[in-house]
Write a protein that binds this DNA or RNA. Sequence first.
DNA 1: TGTAAAAACTTACGCCGCTAGTTTAAGCAC
DNA 2: GTGCTTAAACTAGCGGCGTAAGTTTTTACA
Lengths: 209, 209
Amino acid sequence: MARPRQALLTKERIVEAAAVLIDAEGLEACSMRRLATELGVQGPSLYNHFATKAEIVDAVAEAVVAQVDISVFHGNDWRTALRLWAKSYHAVLAAHPNIVPVLATGPGRRPAGLAMAEAVYGALIDAGWSRARATHIGALMRYLITGSALGSFALGFDADPELYDHYPHLHRAHELAAHRAAVDEGAFELGLDLLITSLSDRYDLGVRR
Amino acid sequence: MARPRQALLTKERIVEAAAVLIDAEGLEACSMRRLATELGVQGPSLYNHFATKAEIVDAVAEAVVAQVDISVFHGNDWRTALRLWAKSYHAVLAAHPNIVPVLATGPGRRPAGLAMAEAVYGALIDAGWSRARATHIGALMRYLITGSALGSFALGFDADPELYDHYPHLHRAHELAAHRAAVDEGAFELGLDLLITSLSDRYDLGVRR
DNA sequence: TGTAAAAACTTACGCCGCTAGTTTAAGCAC
DNA sequence: GTGCTTAAACTAGCGGCGTAAGTTTTTACA
């Protein structure tokens, strides 16, 4: 081909196609050649717009994190804000499960991630939590949210009943697969409830560090 | 070579070498050819002992999970047992961080994982928790433990101060990198404390489902 | 003793991320 | 308008990946 009169690719088109591909077929399906094919182009052409594959995947992750609602930190009590933010984050990850491993492991140099950290940490500091505790609470929320998004607990159990024959308490574990969404949702809700109410208790007692 | 008089490989030797390699250089370094080299053998020879690479990695994961102490569920109150087990699990993952992604995502058909689930779930049921709640609590603990092991919170922040210039509350975030271990440990301890004490409160009030 | 299975080997296939070099169009300086 | 630089596509190819196929030799057993 050579250079076309109208550019075939833009960063935006590439990231959008990558996001669609990852959502539809998973991270492994998103190879440079496959992604290029999806865009009607040859593999190496992508390197005119991104230096590495990691940059593309990072951009997808950034776009996902940017969907989390951090406006809730304005005009809400820290407890309410934390709960609403966590639910929004959780919902976004549930809508894009295939990108979660990238979010859970990679460093957070991306603007959307930093903006989120700023909002959470700032709200906790403003509420009176010590710097150390605010950090811990932020980390903790991240553990709960990414942990639940990543390792769907119910998915870890096979639907084959025979697997559990030798485990007296697990004889109904095969049913978990069928109730996957409800189990994971219940566990997340419980965790959020427990964490926020007990933090709230400490806060009201004046224990803020 | 052909078949040697004394077998060069055994399942145990392969898994042991894979574990060492993963611990030392990470999951990506553990390719079939590299692992074989480490064992003084050609790549495809490994397929005489394992059908796929995934089976080898799974066996490593299994060996790691088997190190978690589940004996604490005998002779301890459910709260104490849960806390001790979580700390043991956390310590094991901290000692083998590179295998954590496998544990956090893969299904739990492995015997050690099932035995652990059986112990946790059984203890909660025996304590009087409803089946649904016991499931939720187990899932929740998993979220906290794998979430914290996987995404070291502090590691997500770069040591470069300039990154945080535009985030008023994050101006000291670059210090997190230096205190990584302490921050992650503090957050995990806080989470464990909050979850167990608030579960304990509910339990004592008779709310067990 | 003959035969089947086991455990090493070599070769090779089709992926992967990415590099290098080529071609043509676009944008800008004079 | 003409030339020069840069941009954006291309093709070819490198080294690495997981794994399949087929070969050779040894061991174990009938």
